[in-house]
């Protein structure tokens, strides 16, 4: 029971991070119908920015945890959005309107490029930082097993919930959200109505990158180690989450992320840690067999 509660906490934390990254996939897919393979690497870039800024702040002697967290979040979000924008502008925009596979290959190329760029400029070794947010509370003890809730886990869950609320408001209530959703439905018609489609797509990429940036900072705080390869695994998991929830659906991405996080945590605790990835993908395949458009996805209606 205590172990289950502990894994629930761990799974929710992990799932929140996957969910944040998955939103970037799902939004981009919704608006231009492509898999942005470089999205996981955007998240990795943000984790490296976070490491640099944390170190920089420590050099300046700023030791207040809330202040440094805030600064790092803002800086990482800012710079990572620029990366998101650039990726779209250089690798995807020239290919808009060509075959479906062309941007996919370009995205894989971009992912390879970003990984190697970071490896070259920041080094190939694993980077550990001094723990930023230490401590936590012990919730309860059953049979000598203590359920521990770290402050960093609280931070991740609170930040994710806040961002989700803000994001839902942005998409459903604001003018940008309406433009974004209308681009999803029909880009030509949206353009005819005087909305700058290119700008909306760019902003979508920047927003997705910003959320990935938050995820990157959170992971840096949570695990304290970063290397240039973390983007690949996290990217695949997050993409799986987006597909599981129904690609193109924002609540679906969040739900998918949470599910994947929970599956991983429980599988690793009760069955085997080595095969947790096999479990994730097998469940994805099972779900898609019975619901081919994901849990919350709209079934595709085909017109002949």
């Amino acid at each position: 029971m205590a172990l289950a509660l502990q894994q629930l906490i761990n799974g929710l934390t992990l799932g929140a991070v996957y969910g944040l990254i998955a939103i970037g996939y799902t939004m981009v897919y919704g608006i231009i119908g492509m898999i942005n393979f470089a999205h996981g690497d955007i998240y990795m870039v943000s984790a490296f920015i976070a490491i640099s800024v944390f170190t920089l702040l420590a050099t300046f002697g700023i030791s207040s945890v809330p202040l440094s967290l805030l600064v790092v979040l803002l800086v990482a979000v800012l710079f990572t959005s620029v990366y998101g924008w650039t990726v779209e502008r250089t690798a995807y925009r020239p290919l808009r309107g060509s075959t479906r596979l062309a941007p996919l290959i370009s995205a894989i190329g971009m992912s390879i490029f970003l990984q190697n760029m970071v490896q070259l400029t920041q080094g190939a070794r694993v980077k550990p930082i001094a723990p930023v947010l230490v401590g936590g509370v012990d919730l309860l003890t059953v049979d000598g097993f203590t359920v521990h809730l770290a402050y960093s886990q609280v931070l991740i869950i609170v930040v994710t919930v806040t961002l989700m609320a803000a994001f839902t408001w942005l998409i459903t209530r604001t003018s940008f959200g309406r433009q974004q959703r209308s681009c999803e439905q029909d880009r030509t018609m949206t353009a005819l109505l005087g909305i700058n489609v290119d700008r909306t797509i760019s902003l979508t990429f920047m927003l997705g990158a910003a959320l990935a940036a938050v995820a990157g900072v959170m992971v840096t705080v949570y695990y304290g180690v970063v290397d240039f390869f973390i983007g690949f695994v996290a990217g695949i998991k997050a993409f799986t989450a987006a597909v599981l929830g129904g690609i193109g659906s924002l609540p679906g991405a969040m739900l998918g992320g949470l599910l994947i996080g929970l599956i991983e945590a429980f599988w690793a605790a009760y069955l085997s840690a080595e095969y947790k990835d096999v479990a994730t993908f097998s469940i994805l395949i099972l779900v898609l067999m019975f619901r081919p458009s994901g849990l919350l996805g709209r079934p595709e209606v085909e017109k002949v």
Partner: peptide
């Protein structure tokens, strides 16, 4: 590998 990734993008474009 950096050039490899860049080449993939450039050939596609």
């Amino acid at each position: 590998m950096l050039l490899f990734g860049a080449a993939m993008i450039l050939i596609m474009i």
